[in-house]
């Protein structure tokens, strides 16, 4: 159990060194060449913008995180359910897949105003946009994963007189997990994008809201602080899913090289 935590700790060092080098160079260049703050603020200015009023930024980051995570969960669960239905009914999959794929290609910025109109001005509409984005990757990957089982293993289950539930829970679902995690990792990125884009369209809180208002007043250090916080949310969320993946499918070849 502690092994994958150790692996995670060890793999943190190289990117940390990169970060230190980049930040130091950035700071030096900004000071040396007196780069105007509205173009590229120095890291120290961004840090000042954050530290003078951290509660406000952290509160807005919390709002965005909440929208992203809730939308991620709702969209992923609904997507997994539809993907399962598709895996079991070829007819359903054939009938609906073209429209699913078509809906998936609609740019989020085009659909967000419509969804917000439907779901109102609160966080629920941002969650709806996020859920919409998180839906397709999981539906498609769940279907692929459930269909990708080994025919010989299915024969083993048949000869062992397994019932339909056992085939699902002891064979097809575990076999689909690597695909599910591919979908979940895509959804992490999509859900943060979805929440912030929805906040661009209409919001009175959240990092997207902060980015829009600071842009209008050209308060660039604060905008950069909000932008970096949104990246941090995405990275932490992604790391969490990757950790769960390591724990859930340690047997999979994608996990094996670190063992």
């Amino acid at each position: 159990m502690a092994k994958w935590l150790g692996v995670a700790a060890r793999s943190i060092w190289p990117p940390l060194v990169t970060a230190v080098v980049v930040v130091a160079t950035w700071e030096a260049v900004c000071r040396l060449f007196e780069v105007p703050a509205y173009m590229i603020p120095a890291p120290s200015r961004i840090w000042m913008a954050f530290i003078t009023n951290p509660e406000s930024l952290l509160f807005n980051a919390g709002v965005t995180l909440f929208e992203a995570v809730t939308g991620f969960l709702i969209g992923s669960i609904l997507g997994a359910m539809l993907g399962t239905a598709f895996a079991y009914s070829r007819l359903l999959a054939r009938g609906m897949m073209p429209y699913i794929i078509a809906a998936n290609t609609i740019p989020v910025v085009a659909i967000a105003p419509i969804i917000i109109l439907w779901f109102g001005h609160g966080v629920q509409s941002k969650i709806a946009v996020t859920a919409f984005l998180s839906f397709f990757p999981l539906a498609l990957n769940m279907m692929k994963g459930l269909q990708s089982y080994d025919r010989v293993i299915m024969d083993v289950f048949h000869v062992s007189a397994a019932n339909e539930w056992q085939r699902f829970f002891k064979m097809r679902l575990p076999n689909a997990l690597p695909y599910v995690f591919v979908g979940l990792k895509l959804n992490v990125t999509f859900s943060v994008i979805g929440a912030i884009v929805a906040e661009f369209v209409q919001a009175d809180k959240g990092l997207g809201f902060v980015i829009m208002t600071t842009y209008r007043t050209l308060n660039m250090p604060r905008l950069w602080a909000a932008m970096l916080l949104s990246a941090l949310i995405g990275i932490m969320f992604f790391a969490l899913i990757a950790l769960i993946e390591r724990w859930a499918i340690p047997w999979h070849s994608s996990m094996r090289n670190d063992e």
């Binding site: 000869v159 062992s160 007189a161």
Partner: peptide, 19 residues
């Protein structure tokens, strides 16, 4: 016979569950 588990089958592929 299958339902009463009187048959064992070994395939060319071991077909073990990886997980």
């Amino acid at each position: 016979a299958r339902q009463s588990r009187e048959i064992g089958f070994v395939f060319q592929d071991p077909a073990l569950l990886e997980w």
